[in-house]
Computed example of a mutant assay.
Amino acid sequence: MTVKRTPLHTRNINIQGFQRDDGLWEVEGVLEDTKGYPFSLEDRGLIEIGDFLHRMTLTLVFDDSFTIRDVRAEMHNTPYADCSGAEPQYKELIGLQIKKGWMDKAKVALGRTTSCTHLTEMLPPLATAALQTIRGYKLNFEPNYASGSEERQTVRNTCHGFRDGGRAQQLLWPQVNEQESKA
Rank of each mutant, 00 (worst) to 15 (best):
V3F: 06
P7K: 06
T10P: 06
R11S: 04
N12F: 07
I13N: 08
N14Q: 15
Q16G: 09
Q16E: 13
F18C: 02
Q19N: 12
R20S: 03
G23W: 10
G23I: 02
G23P: 03
W25M: 03
E26R: 07
E28A: 13
G29H: 04
D33T: 03
D33W: 04
T34S: 08
T34P: 09
T34H: 02
K35R: 13
K35D: 02
P38M: 13
P38Q: 11
P38L: 07
P38T: 13
S40E: 15
L41I: 10
E42C: 09
E48S: 12
E48F: 09
G50Q: 04
G50C: 05
D51Q: 12
D51W: 07
F52I: 05
F52L: 13
H54A: 07
R55E: 10
R55L: 14
M56Y: 04
T59L: 08
F66L: 04
F66E: 02
F66D: 01
R69W: 01
V71R: 00
V71T: 03
V71L: 00
V71N: 03
A73S: 09
A73W: 01
M75Y: 05
P79L: 06
P79N: 09
Y80R: 12
Y80A: 14
C83I: 04
S84E: 10
G85P: 12
Y90R: 01
Y90I: 03
I94G: 06
I94M: 05
G95R: 06
Q97D: 04
I98Y: 05
K99Y: 01
K99H: 06
G101Y: 04
G101R: 07
A106C: 05
K107H: 14
R112K: 14
T113H: 15
T114C: 06
S115F: 07
C116M: 04
T117Q: 02
L119P: 02
T120Q: 02
L123E: 05
L126H: 01
A127D: 04
T128I: 11
A130N: 06
A130I: 05
Q132L: 06
T133N: 06
I134H: 05
G136Y: 01
Y137A: 09
K138A: 08
P143H: 11
S147N: 13
S147K: 13
S147A: 13
G148T: 14
G148R: 10
S149D: 15
E151I: 14
Q153K: 15
V155N: 08
R156A: 14
R156Q: 11
R156P: 00
G161Y: 07
R167G: 08
Q170W: 01
L172N: 08
P174L: 03
Q175R: 10
V176T: 14
V176L: 13
E178M: 09
E180A: 12
S181K: 15
K182H: 10
A183M: 14
A183Q: 15
A183P: 09
